[in-house]
Design a protein around this nucleic acid. Structure first.
Lengths: 337, 337
DNA sequence: AACGTTCTTAAGAACGTTTCCAAGCACCAT
DNA sequence: ATGGTGCTTGGAAACGTTCTTAAGAACGTT
């Protein structure tokens, strides 16, 4: 293999004894004579020529990169999304770049701004909190953005969302069918999009099945994390005695499992537990966790395809896709191991 | 806020009635008169000017980006690294880009090549498998690379590695102190760097403590994943009856926990289990998992700092850092909950 | 009053690539 | 022979930025 020194088209052209434009043409698959192509390829190989990405971008306006912004790399639901998206965008000739923003709106606005610097051809984002400013930033972005999550109705951006209200309904229905009546919710922050959606879905399902609503059965963790879930569950168990707990995501539900175990409560005999997102964490938990599959892989896939299409056709009509939920029953509600 | 249309220095300059170079100077903090600076800033704000990253890169040769390549975003040890690295590089003014390569050497070589396209100013990578070709690609890279992991002695690249042999020693010592004698290893593929290191460490520790070595006590999972760990543990339990199991990483150890539970074996009473990496998964497991902390956060931190230094001083002497291991004792070996 | 110094601003080159355009040439049809 | 057609190749502009160089203005010094 050749040395990888600083090399550019000019050096290759000089070595091959041809013009710069011919080198470019050959290397990008344009038409050229056998003879010319051979000389160019030899020279390029010998010099270990690698094209300069920024120069190409400046000329063509394309980066062949797509950015996926996630709020928390530690959340297994994003892991699922990353895996799915990587495959989809690679097939379309893009490289995926993962950017970890905090959950605060400002860092997400910064991200949208930095997108306009031309780092990538498009952005996939799943904002936890949506503010006016963020929406404005997204709408005035020069480059396409697809949102994984729920947007206000009047925002003209492509989006793919889960139906977590229906999802919680599935969980409640499943629990009610087992005779559970005091169904608690360990939610994440309600000022987040998923937090508020899940609370609304819970309340509506509780009412639909004619169960009692009680504020003692609802607790809010400080974040969608394990640590916060432990605290919130402890608080819940201190103020109520539920016979079922729904965690607003799998991490919160696993935290509930652990807190129940620490309190000597049996799962599912005494208390059933259901998570949401159906991530790897649900399968790894002991007992394995029944979880509402909100279609994170499908959402990520649909969003990636939407973004790729919009990059190709900027004026395509706006799409709003809703992925229906499903329930994966496991040990924590008496399902199979 | 302004519309974010296509905007460049020329437009800003025209609007402000000054020259392009003056706009650049003002925006980059050069010296300029009050009056000029005001006009420029107003025009820039009005047009929603955002500098074009590629153009700047082409001129300056810098991208202010650092790439972190991970083999498997699903492995919690990489999650820890991502979190740590994000913070360090951000403080130094770099943005972190996470790139998910497969575990095969070719995709890692491709990554090194693509680094030479100038996507980033440097690369942090943790190769699972190291081949001659990969080493050659890394060595002839035009841009700096820091390896998180073990390299052959004659390779002149900065690296930060764990001492997994000593780490396994800690695990074995801990288990022996509890009277365990039949200590099994559920390893990952031995053609990987961590796989071979952990096998060697295990064998050496077993010998050091005068335990019997038996090939029935060693199994190899097809990958460092939960799924593969379940299979490997099942095979292990079919051919031997260990009183302790060391998983070569936390996922394999959690898999062992689950497989033992499925077989009705009690942990830690009948069999103790130890993982490696001390990731979040260890704490979330039931029972919580004793794990060898191989210092992934510290390694990531040290590697990031090394890379930042090398970008600043390309001719600095090569550093090889070794992070010492520690043991986090939890329920799976009789520790506290 | 002439000259040197310092400060502000503008002009223009350069980074490496792609692509438009034109030039050269062989070939074919007239 | 002549003109047109198609193909291969080279020249040069352009993308947006930074930075060097130089020009001009203001000011102080001799």
């Amino acid at each position: 293999m050749a040395e990888t020194k600083k090399s550019n088209l000019q050096l290759v052209a000089a070595k091959a004894g041809v013009s710069v434009s011919s080198v470019s043409r050959v290397l990008n698959g344009g038409s050229a004579s056998e003879e010319l192509a051979r000389k160019v390829r030899e020279a390029a190989a010998e010099l270990g020529y690698v094209p300069h990405a920024s120069a190409r971008t400046m000329r063509t306006g394309r980066t062949d990169q797509i950015t996926l912004a996630v709020a928390d790399v530690g959340n297994p639901v994003y892991v699922q999304m990353m895996r799915t998206v990587t495959g989809i965008v690679a097939k379309a000739g893009y490289r995926l770049v993962v950017s970890s923003t905090g959950s605060d709106p400002q860092s997400q606005i910064d991200l949208v701004t930095s997108l306009n610097r031309g780092y990538a051809d498009g952005l996939l984002m799943s904002p936890l909190r949506i503010t006016e400013d963020l929406i404005e930033a997204m709408q005035s972005s020069r480059l396409p953005i697809v949102v994984i999550g729920t947007l206000p109705a009047d925002v003209a951006l492509d989006s793919v969302r889960a139906d977590s209200a229906t999802g919680i309904g599935l969980a409640v229905e499943h629990l009610v069918a087992q005779g559970r009546r005091r169904i608690a919710l360990v939610n994440g922050p309600v000022d987040t999009v998923p937090g508020s959606a899940r609370l609304a879905g819970y309340l509506s399902a509780i009412e639909r099945f004619g169960l009692q609503t009680s504020s003692e059965l609802q607790v809010t963790a400080a974040a969608f994390t394990y640590r916060a879930g432990r605290k919130a569950t402890a608080a819940l168990l201190g103020q109520a005695s539920p016979d079922a707990i729904i965690g607003a995501n799998d991490l919160l539900a696993v935290a509930a499992l652990k807190e129940l175990a620490a309190a000597g409560t049996r799962v599912p005999e005494d208390v059933a537990v259901v998570g949401m997102d159906d991530t790897d964490a649900a399968e790894l938990a002991t007992p394995s966790l029944t979880s509402v599959d909100l279609g994170s892989a499908k959402r990520a896939k649909a969003a990636a395809k939407l973004l790729i299409r919009r990059i190709a056709e900027p004026d395509a009509p706006v799409s709003r896709i809703v992925i229906p939920p499903a329930l994966s029953v496991r040990e924590s509600t008496g399902g199979p191991a």
